[in-house]
Design a protein around this nucleic acid. Structure first.
Length: 303
DNA sequence: AGATAGTCCTGTGGGC
DNA sequence: TGCCCACAGGACTATC
């Protein structure tokens, strides 16, 4: 399940391999991957073909490639917006590479091999769309309309603990629910939410309106830390990740302390001589993993 | 406003 | 062995 670090690894790969190249041709093998592109398949193809790819950008789990054209025309100020969903992959491959079973979209790129940017997506929760760029507070100065509704992500300098603190206090909800809400802070999915809550010693059901400044600062640091760690683990050899960036490879799993660790001893407790087992609790139609000692369940009144 | 349920998909795996 | 069905989950929408 690609979350922010996985998407950033893909972004870096696309920057290395595809930025500056021209789209010579576009093939849509399955229009369901264009579900969010309202103008239809033909318009997608005609807009993309002939455009030059700029430096890829990212906010949260959304990735986009600004498009430009030598003759300034209607393509100016637009971007190819990509979301990997559950199972999306972006592959840069030689033209003769065997066709993937779930290949959805192919961009033929100028100049040299590897000359294809392929979008592969087994479950089709992800997709591509062409989206107008609108000015926004983002390191690049703009975000695509299709991603304008989500909040900044923890790796953007604009995010501060004070800002997050005020947003959480305004809310009347559970802490993990708020963390998964992409409009508040983007890029956090189920895996890194659990990791960050564990690292900061906060329970997933903690009421947001009772959170303190210190706890918020701890939480935000923890979110950044687990994401930077995953990025460091996966970002060093992203060539290999091109083969499989969908998260099922387990590439990022090595560093997980809490998520998926049900029944295993909590590392932090072990260091203090205690033996506590990580628990799994059904939550929001999925699972939450937590340590009952590090992340005590809030008492009545703190929920 | 917050919570819940339904929708989009397909491969996996448990149950029988 | 093989069939069926529940399940998984990110983002979005509809509804309470």
């Amino acid at each position: 399940m690609p979350e922010l670090p996985e998407v950033e690894v893909v972004r870096r790969g696309v920057e290395t391999w595809a930025a500056g190249r021209t789209v010579l041709g576009t093939e849509v093998h399955d229009p369901r991957s264009l579900r969010r592109h309202a103008e239809g398949t033909e318009q997608f193809i005609s807009t993309l073909t002939g455009a030059q790819l700029g430096t890829p950008q990212r906010r949260g789990k959304f990735l986009w490639i600004p498009l430009s054209s030598p003759e300034a025309d209607q393509r100016a100020g637009a971007a190819l917006l990509i979301h990997l969903g559950m199972s999306g992959q972006v592959l840069i491959e030689d033209s003769e590479a065997p066709r993937e079973k779930h290949l959805k979209i192919t961009l033929r790129l100028s100049a040299q091999e590897p000359a294809q940017l392929r979008f592969v997506d087994q479950r089709i929760f992800g997709g591509m769309q062409i989206s107008a760029l609108v000015p926004a507070e983002h390191p690049s100065g703009a975000v695509p309309e299709g991603a304008a509704h989500i909040g900044p992500d923890p790796l953007e300098p604009a995010v501060t603990a004070e800002q997050l603190f005020r947003a959480l206090r305004r809310r009347r909800s559970g802490l993990k629910r708020a963390l998964l809400d992409q409009q508040l802070l983007s890029g956090v999915g189920n895996i890194y939410a659990d990791e960050a809550l564990w690292l900061s010693g906060l329970h997933f059901a903690r009421r947001t309106e009772t959170i303190t400044r210190a706890e918020t600062a701890r939480l935000l640091s923890a979110v950044s830390e687990v994401m930077e760690a995953a990025l460091a683990a996966g970002g060093t050899s992203f060539d290999a990740l091109y083969v499989n960036v969908n998260g099922t490879s387990g590439y990022f799993d090595r560093s997980l302390q809490c998520y998926g660790q049900e029944g295993k001893a909590c590392d932090r407790c072990a260091q203090t001589g205690a033996e506590t087992l990580i628990r799994r609790t059904p939550f929001m139609g999925r699972s939450s993993f937590w340590c009952p000692r590090c992340q005590p369940r809030p008492r009545q009144g703190r929920w």
